[in-house]
Design a protein around this nucleic acid. Structure first.
Lengths: 363, 363
DNA sequence: TTGAAAGCGCTAACAC
DNA sequence: GTGTTAGCGCTTTCAA
C-alpha cells in the first residue's frame, strides 16, 4: 500500500482540524435563538432564562466560540490597547518601564503594544499614525520629537497621552520624568568631589529635554564649583551606541588642546560606545579617564572597573505611568471625556551609584 | 481683572483643539457626495473624476481625516498585526529577535505586538487567547507550554504560527530554532578540552525542547568522552535569574559529595543568578569554578572574567522568522488559505565564544 | 425573557 | 463616474 505523501497528509490534517468560523449568528441559528440572546449569555447579562443560558453555554463551548474583539471595538469605540512608543527597547531602562506598565494595566484587561522607533523622528511619526489608525485607547510616549506635532492627533481627540523620559513643548500634558538637572549635578559633584575639574560630557540632543536639562545641570554644577565651562569638552550625541563612540573619539582627538580627566556620558548605550572608543585608543578607565554613566546596569556584577552611574528609578516610573494610565482611562470612561481630569507632571529623583570607573585624583 | 483659573484655561484649550470625529460619512455629506466616492479617493482607486478627487482630497486634509483601521479590519478580516509572544523581553536574545522581525515586517505594513509572559504558562495561555480575540494575522511564539493546547486555535483557523526557541509536541508546524544538542556539545567539549571532567549543569525544564535537547547534548558529549553522567550534577531551572541562583546554591550545597570543576548554565538570566550564588559563597570564577553560559552578552566588554558562552544567531533568527512570516502571510492572501504551503523547520547552528570564565586544569 | 433592527465605519458589488 | 446597498460581528435600544 502506497503511503500518503507528506504533503497530502498535511493537508488532510489541516482540513480535519479546520474549524468553521463561528460567530453569534451561527450559534443563534444552531439553537433557533436570536443573536441578542446569545450575546447576552456571552456577556453574562441578565434577563436570560436559566435553561436557555445553559443551552447556549453548551453550544458556545462545543463550537469553541471566541468573541471577535474587532467587532466589539468598532461598536464600543474602545480597543483595550495601550501603545507604548520608545526609542530603543534594548535599553534596560525602557525595558523595565515597559514591564512596569504592563504589570499594572494587564490586570485591568489592557494589552500593551510596544513600538521601537530606533531613535528616529520619522519612525516615531509613522508609528504614531498607525497607532492612531488602530484606535489605541491611550499612549505612552518617550518622544524624540521636540515639538510634538505627531502626537497632537491624540490630544485633539482626548486620547490619554503620558510622556516619559522626554517632554515636548506642549501645554497641559501628563508626564512622568526625572529631575534631569539634579541628575547632572549628582554626577558632576561626584566627579568634583573626587578631584576632577576638567570634565567632558557626552550629552543628548539639546533640543530634547533630556539633553537640555542635563546640559543645564552640568553647567550649573561646574559654575557652582567655580569651574568655567569649556565648550570643547561638550559633545552632542543621540543616545545610540554609535554616537557614544563617535563623540568619545571626537573628545579624544582634541584632548591635547582640551584636556579632561573625566567624562560624563548620559545614556547606557552611549556609555558602551564611549568605553569602546576609550579602549580602542589604548586608554584605561579610570587610570587615564574617569567615567560616570547614566542608566548603566550590570546584571553580572562582574564589570571591571564597575561603572559609576546615575540611575533613574525605572521600575517606579513604570508603575506610576501604569497607574496614571488607568486613572485617565477610568475618568474618560466615567465622564465620557477627560476634561475634568487635570494633567499631572510627576518628577522623580535620580540616584547616584558610585563605582571604580571614577578615580580620586589630586590637583 | 481676575485671571482665569488654570483649570478653566485648560478646559478652554482642550475644547479649542477638540476635533470632531470625522469619518467617511461626514466628509461625504460635507461635499454632497456619497461615501463610496470618498472611499475611492481615500484608497486611491480609479473611476473618480479628477476634479472630484481634488475636492475630496482637500476636504480630507482640512478635516484631518484618518481612516479607522478597526472598521477596515472588520470588513477585510485582516488586522496587519503580528503577535510575538516571549517569555522575557529583557533577555538580549529575545530583544534582538523582536528587532529583527520588526525590521522585516514593518516595511510591509505590519505592526508587531510584543507580549511578555514572564516564563509563565498561565500568562501565555491568557495572552494567546487575547491575541486571538484581537484577530492578529500571524503569531510568533516562544512557548513554555509543551503540548501547545493554547496555540491550537490559531492552527485550527489557519493563522500562520512560527515557533522559535521552543517547539511543542505538534505536527506540521513552522519553526526557527537551533541545534540545541550541538550547542551543548560545543560547550561540554570546550570544557573537556580544558581538562574538566566533573561538569555540572543548570538546564531548562526537560519538558521543553530547549531543556531536553540541551540535556541530551550534555549527556552525549560526556559519554563520548567516556565520562559517566552524575545525576547529582544536573539541576533543572526555568531560565529565570532566580532559578539560576537557586540551582547554583543547590549544586554548591552538595559539592562535597558531588564535586565539580565546571558548570554549564543554559540561559543568560540563569548565568546572572549562578554568578551571584558563586560570589555569595565566596568562590571565584574561574579559580574555584569554571563557567560557560548560554546567550550571554557583554555590551561593555568589561566583564571580568569574560564569560565563555554559547550564542544563538539571534539576528538571523529574527530575520528568517520575519521572512517566513511574510511568506506565510502572502501565500494566505493569494490562496485564501495556507494549505499549499508546506511547513518549514529551520534549524540554525549555535556558536561558541571562549572566555576567561573557563580555566584550563590538569587532571 | 426574547427578538428585531439599527448602527459602529468601512469596502465592494451592483445599479444608474 | 457616482450612488445605493449589503454586510463584516457585535451590542443595545425598543418592542413584543
Amino acid at each position: 500500500m502506497q503511503t500518503m505523501s507528506d504533503n497530502v497528509r498535511r493537508k488532510r490534517a489541516v482540513l480535519m482540524r479546520k474549524a468553521k468560523t463561528n460567530n453569534l449568528k451561527h450559534i443563534a441559528e444552531r439553537l433557533g435563538l436570536s443573536v441578542s440572546t446569545v450575546s447576552r449569555v456571552v456577556n453574562n447579562k441578565e434577563y436570560v432564562k436559566e435553561d436557555t443560558r445553559r443551552r447556549v453555554m453548551e453550544a458556545l463551548n462545543e463550537c469553541n466560540y471566541v468573541p471577535n474583539e474587532i467587532a466589539r471595538s468598532l461598536k464600543s469605540k474602545t480597543t483595550h490597547t495601550i501603545g507604548v512608543v520608545l526609542p530603543d527597547i534594548s535599553e534596560v531602562f525602557f525595558g523595565e518601564i515597559v514591564k512596569g506598565i504592563n504589570k499594572i494595566v494587564s490586570d485591568e484587561g489592557y494589552t500593551v503594544v510596544i513600538v521601537d522607533t530606533n531613535e528616529s523622528k520619522k519612525n516615531e511619526q509613522k508609528y504614531l499614525e498607525i497607532l492612531y489608525q488602530k484606535r489605541i485607547d491611550a499612549l505612552v510616549l518617550a518622544t524624540v520629537d521636540l515639538n510634538g506635532d505627531s502626537v497632537k492627533v491624540f490630544l485633539d481627540h482626548s486620547i490619554p497621552v503620558i510622556f516619559i523620559d522626554n517632554v515636548p513643548k506642549l501645554e497641559n500634558i501628563n508626564s512622568v520624568t526625572i529631575n534631569n538637572r539634579g541628575a547632572s549635578k549628582l554626577a558632576i559633584d561626584f566627579l568634583i568631589k573626587n578631584g576632577h575639574r576638567d570634565i567632558a560630557t557626552i550629552i543628548g540632543s539639546k533640543e530634547e529635554t533630556t539633553g537640555s536639562e542635563r546640559m543645564q545641570g552640568y553647567i550649573e554644577a561646574l559654575e557652582a564649583a567655580g569651574i568655567s565651562v569649556n565648550e570643547n569638552l561638550i559633545e552632542y550625541g543621540n543616545y545610540k551606541e554609535s554616537s557614544g563612540y563617535n563623540c568619545m573619539c571626537n573628545l579624544l582627538s582634541k584632548r591635547k588642546e582640551n584636556p579632561f580627566s573625566a567624562v560624563y556620558v548620559t545614556s547606557e548605550m552611549m556609555v558602551f560606545g564611549a568605553v569602546k572608543a576609550i579602549k580602542e585608543n589604548g586608554l584605561i578607565i579610570p587610570d587615564d579617564i574617569s567615567l560616570i554613566g547614566f542608566d548603566v546596569h550590570d546584571k553580572t556584577g562582574l564589570v571591571r572597573p564597575s561603572i559609576a552611574t546615575i540611575r533613574q528609578p525605572e521600575k517606579l516610573i513604570g508603575k506610576i505611568t501604569g497607574e496614571m494610565l488607568l486613572q485617565e482611562l477610568n475618568s474618560k470612561e466615567n465622564q465620557g471625556d477627560s476634561l475634568d481630569m487635570p494633567t499631572r507632571q510627576v518628577i522623580l529623583e535620580p540616584h547616584l551609584f558610585g563605582g571604580e570607573s571614577v578615580k580620586k585624583i589630586n590637583n
